[in-house]
């Protein structure tokens, strides 16, 4: 009389749920940090592109008013010249209270002297580039001097800063994957030591190194992928919270396409965790088995 057998073969290595869970938690925390670094990098990059686009579409024209009596006439002349040059542009002449507001951070709330030579400011928003030199020549003929600021000083600095932040984010992702690799190496070595008796039985049964290594690779790949997926899911949740509320102009998701691309990247990151853990396990197992073979 014989018993009924299960349909599937049992795994050759024992599953140790408590040890496996602890490792998955460690990997999930690492994956969360890596995913947040990735999302911050992507968010900062998006923000830089938004700001740069906005800055490139706007410029400020300073009108060096010759005297207060001529201010109104000269400002009108410049405004007319701008409308003539860029008919599609949004042109906004700053009023005196707006000028005062701009100076307040430097001069405080004290009333400004009447004879303080403050240039007139005109804000221009246009997709088309402002032909600065021809405009200057045209207005100089009327005795009006203008200076145009296209904000390139700020956008260049912003680009460089964000570029460094993106590099830092990529570095953090790589460093975290490296830490996951180290964790997997240690876990595999510990597993090999703990399962020494089973490995001896397998070797005696004629198992190849790759057969034994595959047992550890499979377990490690599962742990890495599950840990990576959990960590990335947590990071995606946090990012969703950041994204709710303020829309465009923040580092969070401001559109469906951004979100979809980021989710695809997070899935790839989770798979990377699986691959890195599997690779580390395979390398550690093969190396240790090779060392042991030399002694046999």
């Amino acid at each position: 009389m014989s018993e009924r057998l299960p349909e599937q073969s049992q795994p050759i290595l024992p599953s140790r749920p408590e040890q496996g869970r602890a490792l998955i938690v460690v990997l999930a925390v690492m994956a969360t940090l890596a995913a947040l670094a990735l999302l911050f990098s992507r968010g900062a990059d998006r923000l830089e592109h938004d700001w740069s686009a906005q800055l490139s579409e706007s410029s400020t024209v300073q009108v060096m008013v010759a005297s207060e009596t001529l201010r109104a006439a000269q400002m009108s002349a410049v405004e007319a010249a701008l409308r003539d040059t860029l008919p599609e542009a949004r042109i906004n002449v700053l009023e005196s209270d707006e000028l005062d507001a701009l100076l307040r951070p430097w001069l405080g709330d004290a009333p400004l002297p009447d004879d303080l030579p403050v240039p007139g400011l005109i804000r221009v928003n246009s997709r088309a580039a402002l032909p600065v030199e021809s405009l200057q020549r045209r207005l100089e003929g009327d005795g009006i001097r203008i200076v145009v600021d296209d904000h390139s000083r700020f956008s260049g600095s912003l680009s460089r800063t964000v570029g460094r932040l993106v590099l830092l984010g990529i570095g953090l992702v790589i460093a975290t994957l490296g830490a996951a690799l180290a964790v997997s190496l240690f876990a595999t070595r510990a597993g090999l030591s703990a399962q020494r008796d089973i490995i001896h039985v397998l070797v005696q049964a004629g198992a190849s190194d790759s057969f034994i290594a595959r047992l550890f690779i499979g377990a490690s790949a599962r742990r890495g992928t599950v840990g990576g997926a959990l960590g990335c899911a947590v990071a995606a949740g946090l990012w969703l919270i950041i994204s709710i509320g303020p829309g465009r102009g923040t580092v969070g998701w401001s559109g469906a396409l951004d979100g979809i691309i980021d989710i695809i990247l997070l899935v790839a990151l989770a798979l990377c965790f699986g691959v890195v853990c599997a690779g580390a396990a395979g390398w550690a197992a093969t190396r240790q088995l090779t060392d042991e073979r030399k002694r046999l």
Binding site: S9, Q10, I12, D197, V201, Q204, A205, A207
Partner: peptide, 30 residues
């Protein structure tokens, strides 16, 4: 070559978490 050799050890070296069936089938799985 090891697959052509069957070994019975004094301490049995059975794998504790595998059933009797799986222990016996191990060389065939390998």
């Amino acid at each position: 070559l090891r697959r052509r050799i069957g070994v019975v050890l004094q301490d049995f070296r059975l794998i504790d978490h595998l059933s009797v069936f799986e222990n016996v089938a191990l060389p065939l799985r390998v």
